[in-house]
Design a protein around this nucleic acid. Structure first.
Length: 345
RNA sequence: CCGCCCUUAGCUCAGGCUGGUAGAGCAGUCGACUGUAGAUCGACUUGUCCCCCGUUCAAAUCGGGGAGGGCGGACCA
């Protein structure tokens, strides 16, 4: 694979890349540049996480050195989303769930390195760098960088600001040439590009994944159960949620069902060499088969493919992608019980 | 250390002065209409009124104590 092919692999299915030229020159200069993504182990993981994790398969295939940070301290710093005592349990659950998703995406979990925040964020040189950054960053700059990531409230804690600076520093500490995350992370990594070189570190390139729409329209919401598919949802629950999803005929924008297909289902099917089948009554034209998302979107846009026919097919396909992850998690029920004692224990 | 303010439905909040079976909006659930969902109509559900003690026939409401949160002051040789 040459640098251009590797770059294509890294940049496909993304929302934004900063910058593509930087990525390509990385491949020209080096065999195995590093990419990292961080997850703060807070609430239960869901299909939105899955789409960002699915892309790790592309990174592995492109020959990048992939690191997943389980950012335990961040989970507490962000408005105490995770209680201090639960950080270990939630970190263990996140790592297991992420490994299961990588495998379900057709890649090898062994090819990815896992690091926990507290492994390196409590001592030098990290701490010294952090204090320097705290001294150099204005409140408004830190607030702006983290505004899409850190929970916003009427009485924000200092921790939310430190969170932002720590995440910028994580890029350097994990020796990542590329910072990867959802597009909501953009502000933080732009701060990293600005600030890290001033402290003698490299300037990271960035790859941003799209944030998928919620199933009830608008953004996916953690507090709205019906707006997202959970990793623990069984086939029937997935079917119910997709059936109830906002999905206007001929409209592609703000359509969670199509987005799930585009960024999760089709990439996984392609990896397996499978097609997407739609059972459709003869009355409406009979069954359909798609080998790629573009053809499906074209039919949906034109009205040829109706939501009522698409939904059951999409539900089956999504359920099939999620099933192996759910099964892995249910094989070790103590993971969820320990991480979320209020809900499972 | 001192003072003041806040705490009521899943969320945002009214009610409290003047005690009498606890409300609105949003969310949610269910129907109608659509070959899905949404929108729009129609119906419905939701409570430790932060906790304890007291006054009273009766306390979300009055009094005392406490907890949690917020704001301010003081201290800074």
């Amino acid at each position: 694979m040459d640098a251009a092919e590797r770059t294509d692999l890294v940049t496909r299915y993304t929302e934004e890349v900063v910058t593509e030229a930087e990525i390509e020159s990385l491949f020209e200069e080096r065999d195995d540049p590093g990419v990292y993504i961080g997850y703060a182990p807070t609430g239960e993981m869901h299909i939105g996480h899955f789409t960002t994790i699915r892309k790790l398969a592309d990174f592995v295939e492109a020959g990048l050195d992939v690191t997943v940070l389980v950012a335990d301290l961040h989970a507490h710093l962000d408005d105490e989303k995770s209680p201090f005592e639960l950080l270990d349990a939630r970190s263990a659950y996140y790592q297991a769930a992420i490994e299961a998703m990588i495998e379900a995406a057709g890649s090898d979990p062994e090819a990815v390195s896992f690091v926990r925040g507290t492994d390196y964020q409590l001592e030098e040189p990290y701490t010294l760098d952090l204090y320097r950054m705290l001294a150099e960053t204005t409140l408004s700059r830190a607030r702006r960088a983290g505004s899409e990531v850190v929970r916003q409230s009427e009485n924000p804690k200092v921790g939310g600001l430190v969170y932002t600076l720590m995440q910028s520093l994580d890029v350097a500490a994990l020796e990542a040439d590329v910072a990867y995350g959802g597009i909501d992370q953009r502000g933080i990594y732009m701060l990293a590009r600005e600030q890290l070189p001033e402290q003698g570190h490299g300037k990271p390139a960035c790859v941003f994944a799209p944030l998928l729409s919620g199933l009830s329209g608008g953004k996916m919401s953690a507090s709205e159960a019906g707006s997202k598919i959970n990793l623990t949802d069984d086939d029937e629950t997935v079917a119910e949620k997709i059936e109830g999803a906002y999905c206007p005929a001929e409209q592609v924008e703000d359509n969670g069902v199509l987005e799930y297909l585009r960024f999760l289902v089709f990439p996984v099917l392609a990896e397996r060499g499978e097609s997407f089948r739609v059972d459709r009554p003869e009355e409406y034209g009979g069954d359909l088969v798609y080998d790629g998302y573009d053809a499906l979107e074209a039919d949906f846009r034109s009205g040829e493919l109706h939501p009522a026919d698409l939904k059951p097919a999409a539900a089956d396909a999504i359920a099939a992608v999620v099933a192996p992850v759910r099964e892995r998690l249910l094989e070790a029920p103590e993971l969820l019980e320990d991480a979320y004692p209020g809900r499972y224990a």
